[in-house]
């Protein structure tokens, strides 16, 4: 039987090598391109024939816009509007990538740590630069604990800095672990459908089949939830960087 981890294998579709670097167009790249095309198409088609009473696609486009716009104004406030394009792109990319990954025979690029880490480190570096540009040296007061004796500073400041540096790791691992675990679980239970069904003339396969239907629904929820968590944490980090004073 196929390994439940086989679905995460990177396969080159069009091998390209430039100066010893393997930059092949892989199934992961294909999934990302599909996500970009679908996301762009959804928003462009949705708003191309905008009417007062929105149709289905227009509703989806408007709802996702309002969702992220609301998230930003709730967490960051009025200044958050400037960062809307970034957070919205990130949210849509992760959400559509997660959802596309649930289709049979597709590939979930968010189940690769390097993809989620690249996104998280972009957010982290961007937010740090934002804080440094906005507050100059005041940014470092972020790490200084209030009301703590001076003698404790050498201990607490490194802890704060490590805590700050651990942000991109917890941000990326959260998304990656959820997608990896969910998709592995689906494949394992899927294997039970065949394995149990084969020895009991199909009857034993019914229970895991019911379970996998429920789990697929749960995976759709997780796809939304993880995209939301990534977006809201990005908003909180932006808020932290902006409001140090």
């Amino acid at each position: 039987m196929a390994s439940p981890l086989e679905q995460f294998e990177i396969k080159a579709i069009a091998p390209i090598e430039v100066g010893g670097l393997d930059i092949s167009f892989t199934n992961s790249s294909a999934a990302m391109v599909a996500t970009l095309v679908l996301g762009t198409a959804l928003l462009v088609l949705g708003m191309s024939r905008a009417s007062v009473v929105p149709g289905r696609i227009q509703s989806i486009a408007e709802m996702s816009y309002e969702f992220i716009a609301g998230l930003l104004s709730d967490t960051v406030g009025a200044e958050g509007k400037r960062y809307f394009p970034f957070v919205f792109t990130l949210f849509m990319f992760i959400l559509i990538g997660n959802l596309l990954g649930l289709l049979p025979y597709s590939f979930t690029f968010t189940s690769h740590i390097i993809v989620t880490f690249a996104m998280a480190i972009t957010v982290f570096i961007g937010v740090t630069i934002l804080g440094l540009v906005k507050h100059k040296m005041h940014f470092f007061s972020f790490f200084v604990p209030p009301g703590v004796p001076l003698a404790m500073w050498p201990l607490l400041i490194p802890i704060e800095i490590i805590s700050y540096l651990s942000r991109p790791i917890s941000l990326s691992v959260r998304l990656f672990a959820n997608m990896l675990a969910g998709h592995t679980l689906l494949k394992v239970i899927g294997g039970f459908v065949f394995g149990l069904g084969a020895i009991t003339f199909g009857v034993g396969g019914l229970l895991p089949l019911a379970l996998i239907s429920v789990l697929t629904g749960l995976e759709v929820v997780i796809a939304f939830l993880q995209a939301y968590v990534f977006a809201i944490l990005t908003c909180l980090y932006i808020n932290d960087a902006l409001h140090l004073h």
Partner: peptide
């Protein structure tokens, strides 16, 4: 130090301070 920072992270998440790092917010 990392274990202490991790415990700090857990405390902040559990006490509902979201993704907060740093003391500035509380002050």
């Amino acid at each position: 130090l990392g274990a202490a920072a991790g415990t700090f992270n857990v405390f902040r998440t559990a006490s509902g301070q979201g993704g907060a790092v740093g003391f500035k917010q509380a002050r």
